[in-house]
């Protein structure tokens, strides 16, 4: 006769959460290959955006607005690149529900015996890898357009900021990904709007000091602010890990709060969606 106890113990425990999380990385990679034309669009858009904004520094130099054009070039270049990275991570993760709804697979994915934490972490790992590849390509294409001096850059410290900071950004992505679960019709739009606000308050193209005080307050609660600070510190000022300890500690704190916190919020929202029948109606 069937051994129910054995069956129920099987997936998560024998195969382990790593293999289960990898299922999502593999699936997203397969999807990404099939949607390569869109990837190309985002790449071109990313390169053009990076160039367009960085040329503003050239203009400022020509018009005599700044004396230190090379600093401004690097400042804007890093701003656009970091934003390309952050928005790619946020997009991938926050679309976790929207994407499944659109494909019509949401119920089959959510009824699989995978804990939601493993599911969301798998999606986040893909998001981070995807964003790194895309940003490196943009970087490689855009940098030759400008004569930037990267001699002082501390690449190791920059890598540490990316690794540590990505967790907190993933948490933010999961948090905005809850909205489509709660509001099947408008949730995706709402999460894009939150992304836009993060762009405004985090000092992507300017330092947050220029914000009016009431907006400035919000910059403190955006992990992207510290991410940008860390990257600019490492690459423009050549700061090492020990110089960036304060920034890194803040990012760790955000990660420690946002990752488990957002997964917990997601679980509550999913339960509510299962109660009210918001996952799917037809079929």
């Amino acid at each position: 006769m069937l051994n129910i106890a054995e069956r129920t113990a099987q997936p998560g425990l024998i195969r382990g959460p790593v293999t289960l999380a990898y299922a999502f990385v593999e699936r997203q990679t397969n999807l990404w290959k099939r949607y390569w034309a869109w990837e190309l669009v985002w790449l071109v858009y990313g390169v053009v955006n990076t160039l367009a904004i960085t040329f503003i520094a050239k203009e400022a130099e020509q018009a005599g607005i700044t004396t230190d054009a090379s600093h401004l070039v690097l400042f804007l270049l890093l701003g656009t690149l970091v934003w390309a990275y952050l928005s790619a991570v946020l997009d991938d993760i926050s679309l976790v529900i929207t994407w499944e709804r659109w494909e019509g697979t949401i119920e089959h994915t959510l009824m699989a015996p995978v804990s939601r934490a493993v599911h969301l972490i798998g999606m986040s790992i893909f998001g981070v890898l995807h964003a790194i590849v895309r940003t490196l390509l943009i970087f490689a294409i855009a940098v030759p357009f400008f004569s930037v001096d990267l001699g002082q850059a501390n690449w190791f410290a920059a890598a540490v900021v990316i690794v540590v900071g990505s967790a907190s950004v993933a948490g933010l992505g999961i948090l905005t990904g809850v909205l489509p679960l709660l509001y099947p019709e408008r949730g995706t739009q709402m999460s894009f709007m939150i992304q836009a606000v993060v762009l405004l308050i985090s000092g992507v193209y300017y330092s947050v000091d220029v914000l009016p005080p009431w907006l400035r307050v919000f910059s403190y609660i955006s992990p992207a602010t510290y991410f940008l600070d860390g990257i600019r510190g490492a690459i423009i000022d050549g700061d090492g890990v020990q110089d960036l300890l304060g920034t890194l500690a803040t990012l760790v704190l955000f990660g420690v709060i946002l990752v488990p916190g957002s997964i917990a919020v997601f679980a509550v929202a999913e339960k509510w969606a299962r109660k009210t029948g918001q996952l799917k109606r037809q079929g």
Partner: peptide, 15 residues
């Protein structure tokens, strides 16, 4: 969840 699976009227795949 680990004991069941389901077929619905609409196939629901990544198309």
């Amino acid at each position: 969840r680990s004991l069941i699976n389901r077929v619905s009227a609409d196939p629901s795949f990544f198309r």
